[in-house]
Amino acid sequence: MFYRLAGVHHTRYEQARALWPVPADRWQVLVIALLALAAPFYLSDLYLGSYMLPWLIWSAGALALTLLMGMAGQLHFGFAAVMAIGAYSSIHLARLGIPFELTLVGAGLVSAVIGSLFGAAALRVKGLYLVMATLAMQYLVDWVIINVPAISGGAQATLRTPAVSFLFVPLESLTARYYLALAWVALSAVFFLNVKRTSFGRALVAIRDKDFAAAVIGVDPFRYKLMAFFTSSFMGGVTGAILAFCYYRAVTPEQFSFNVSIQLVAMVLVGGLGSVVGGFLGAGFVLLIPIMLTNFVAGLAASGWLAVSSNLLSHLPLMIYGALIIGFLLFEPLGLAKIYDNIRKYFLVWPFRHARS
């Protein structure tokens, strides 16, 4: 069995600190990386631009929010506003002639500063009060974007992205934009995997579990929560810029509404809090499952297997989708990442049912 081990025996600290100590995990990551790199060669432009590209970008957004919600335990229901700040900032910076590499950094910094300001105000409250504080950020940013023409051009205006190049490669072709999104989500995943092993990550976990106990052992909750808001908002701002330049190519206020924030929270919860795999699985579930269900139900209706009215047919995929989310939260509250981990551990110890890896 390729996945089975006769025990994990670490004799060096380098082995114990490895990201993927199981050889099968390393092979799995390598195969996925090769498939992702070769995707433009075996996928059509329709699938690459309509499925793979948005999935990668929203996975990066889910990972940015997971850093805040999964590791630091801070609820955020206004993360679409953070991405909106990054998207609009990047367009205005690019129009000023700033190189796109610096534009991404600038968009991330603008989002981080504004996100940290709201985070600092929200750090003195918890739970539902923190949710209300982040909701206030969402609605305030939406109002400013809509009512300040210098930012968005007006409530009904569409702000087109200028032509830019990344590392001297023009972002005009779909392949170039796909590889930029792939590079950013890979960098976000590697960062998230490593930050969990640093003192910063361990401090966030301590604050998430019990903030006053963390303060007793010398961890400053206010400082580390503020750092979490800054880091998460920076990643969200860069993701918003990449979303604008690589996928939308033109931004409107409706693209970063409150519904988008809810979708991001759903990606994190359904995928699994504090998990890199969960970020990818949650983004894929929220983005792709409704499309697949719609096509499946439409196919059944067209073939005569499902005799329903057109009104019910338009709502049936969303009903099934909602039932799936409720089912996951009922039977596996830890999300899709936990289901994947259970399957992985089963193969690690198979056929010894009660063995532990």
Rank of each mutant, 00 (worst) to 15 (best):
H76F: 06
I325F: 07
Y224G: 00
I262F: 15
S310K: 06
E254G: 04
S261V: 04
F296Y: 14
R356A: 15
R223Y: 04
G240P: 06
I146E: 15
G299Y: 01
N259E: 12
V251Q: 07
E172A: 03
F256G: 12
L348T: 06
A36T: 11
S232I: 08
R202Y: 00
L140G: 14
L140A: 13
T11S: 07
V277Q: 15
Y178V: 09
G327K: 10
V105I: 14
W143C: 03
Y129D: 01
L313H: 07
A39W: 11
V270G: 04
L117S: 00
G70M: 06
L19T: 04
L140Q: 00
F331A: 10
I325S: 11
D25Y: 11
A36S: 12
V268K: 03
A298R: 07
I57M: 03
A72T: 07
L96W: 12
W55E: 02
A155N: 08
G282A: 06
N295M: 08
G335E: 08
P149C: 12
K345Q: 15
G272P: 13
L182Q: 05
G73D: 14
F79N: 11
V277H: 14
L281E: 04
V125P: 00
G322R: 11
D220M: 00
G299M: 03
T294W: 02
R353E: 14
P149T: 14
G279H: 08
I32E: 02
F212W: 11
A250D: 04
G327R: 08
P221G: 04
W27F: 08
V276C: 08
Q255Y: 15
F168R: 06
D209G: 02
A112G: 09
R249D: 05
W350D: 02
L288N: 12
A355F: 15
K345H: 14
R95G: 12
M319Y: 00
A122Q: 03
I217M: 11
G271N: 06
F192H: 10
L35S: 06
Y13Q: 14
A38K: 00
A176G: 07
L140Y: 01
V349S: 14
L96G: 10
L243D: 07
F256L: 09
L182D: 03
A337E: 08
A81Q: 11
W184E: 05
I291M: 08
L68C: 10
A136Q: 05
Q15V: 02
A107K: 01
N311F: 03
F285N: 08
V169P: 01
G86P: 12
G70P: 08
V308G: 05
V349A: 10
L288K: 07
Y224Q: 02
D45L: 13
S309P: 01
N311H: 04
M71S: 13
Q28T: 15
R344M: 03
G108M: 07
V216G: 01
A244N: 10
L180C: 06
R344F: 05
L243C: 00
Y346S: 11
L193T: 07
S89Q: 13
G49K: 04
A107D: 01
V169R: 11
I32R: 01
L330R: 14
Y346A: 12
G284S: 07
Y88H: 13
R197S: 11
D341Y: 13
V349E: 02
P162T: 14
I289E: 02
